[in-house]
Design a protein around this nucleic acid. Sequence first.
DNA 1: CGTCATTTAGTTGTAGGCAATTGAATTGTG
DNA 2: CACAATTCAATTGCCTACAACTAAATGACG
Lengths: 166, 166
Amino acid sequence: MTTTPTADWLRLDQQICFSLNAASRAFGGVYRVVLKDLGLTYPQYLVMLVLWEHGDLPVKKLGEHLRLDSGTLSPLLKRLEAAGLVRRERSARDERSVEVRLTEEGAAMRERALQVPRRIATATGFDVDEIRALRARLDQLTEALDAAAVEEAAVNAAAESPGRGA
Amino acid sequence: MTTTPTADWLRLDQQICFSLNAASRAFGGVYRVVLKDLGLTYPQYLVMLVLWEHGDLPVKKLGEHLRLDSGTLSPLLKRLEAAGLVRRERSARDERSVEVRLTEEGAAMRERALQVPRRIATATGFDVDEIRALRARLDQLTEALDAAAVEEAAVNAAAESPGRGA
DNA sequence: CGTCATTTAGTTGTAGGCAATTGAATTGTG
DNA sequence: CACAATTCAATTGCCTACAACTAAATGACG
């Protein structure tokens, strides 16, 4: 049982989100180096991962896997297309939808990418089980935060227009 | 002891960095909502935290606390200045340096910000000790990654120009 | 004193991320 | 069928992040 003075709650080094941010950006640094020979940025690499795993997908599905919307994906996919790794084709069945397809070159890159996860895993200094445990913890955190964001948004909306409360 | 087929290493849901990214962005969502009445973005809030904790600081020091460089801080600080929370003044002793000072309004905002960490902590669904443990784990991860980035960069540099090896 | 390397902010260019809007296609409903 | 609501991708605008570069000021050293 550890009590903390209220004032200290504002200390930067107590903010979990700061540690999280720092770790995320540190990963960015490692990926930047490791992905350089593939010519990919980290988010582009994530898109390729999804395509390698699931095959061709509409932008919508891609976004669901990655939790990204079209505002982020559209320009990113254009860059992948310009790099020759991907084609974007309007679906014939549903003209609203755009299918993202791997090119030969994009599919071929998978082989070269196989070494990436191992290099990254090594860089973390964690073993497989530690990584798994941390992942589980983070996913749990994300779930709680997503739920809370909805809650908070509802509270805020109620505060702005005190319409019909429960 | 769990062996994983090499091919599976590319699976998105095995990438620790993805969980990390997702959590980081989920935090972003909560902070966006919680910080709305303060009119701050999350990185701006971090800057304010540092200033509240350490008082006026040159841009350089601010960047060291936050691991951000002038390319990120300069425009961000301009926005804080435009919002009236901060002043930027060329140091008299060293004209290269720019002191970032809290305005009355900026200092006063601290009171209103005191509630933020509690709301965020609640949103995580974790208790204080769980947060502390996760923070420690993440900081450890960041340290390992920072070290590895340097290693990898050295390897890459050596590969590009095979100059004098050890 | 003068020159040169270093330090410090700022700027530019590229790339994410996200909210809000737009426009086209599809679906549901009368 | 007609028309409204919905879905989907793209676009716009704003805010990070970071590499590479510029410009000004400082410090060290011959």
